[in-house]
Amino acid sequence: MNKHTIVALMQDRPGALNRAVSLFRRRGYNIESLAVGHTETEGISRMTLVVESADVEQVVKQLYRLVEVLKVSDVTSDPTVEREMVLVKIHAPADKRAEVVAVGEIFGAKIVDVGATTMVLEMTGTPSKVENFVDVIKPFGVKEMMRTGRIAMVRGARGHGAQSYDAAENGHLAEPLAALN
């Protein structure tokens, strides 16, 4: 089983995400990471999904069968920029703060909240760098941690743009029909 990073563009309609992830569930593939958000074109979402799967080509073809799916790429072996973000709340009484700040600085983490005994750090980086940061910060005492899914973008001119999809063409349902009457 190999890990695959799949990027898909899809219309922003109710149920679209559910349909897409169901194709993985049906085969018993576990989704390791999932991130979905708006793109440069209104009405179109971009999904980055990391999955361990033996037969990802078949799933990619089946993703295309979904009416809302516009474009799917398995970017696993492409040169990509991959990022993940983590928010971590650590136990940091006054005497530990300087140490936490120093460790944070090494990883380019930002301190986004300071409480009486806690600090919240925000860190963005490649998934392995995030992993590394989490390992180093752990001994301070993690009270809460939250990681986003991974997002991936292919480097260079060859891309996965949503501009070619006219905003007006997307999800008629997003555009209230009443307005046309």
């Binding site: 149920g15 349909r19 169901s22 979904l66 009416v67 349902l173 209230p176 029909l177």
Partner: peptide, 24 residues
């Protein structure tokens, strides 16, 4: 029923507004 039939339909819709019926 849209949740139940998601994997056994080519597509399905939940329509909550009269404005969408004709189009859907």
């Amino acid at each position: 029923i849209t949740g139940i039939t998601m994997p056994i339909t080519k597509h399905n819709y939940l329509v909550k507004r009269v404005e969408d019926i004709a189009y859907v």
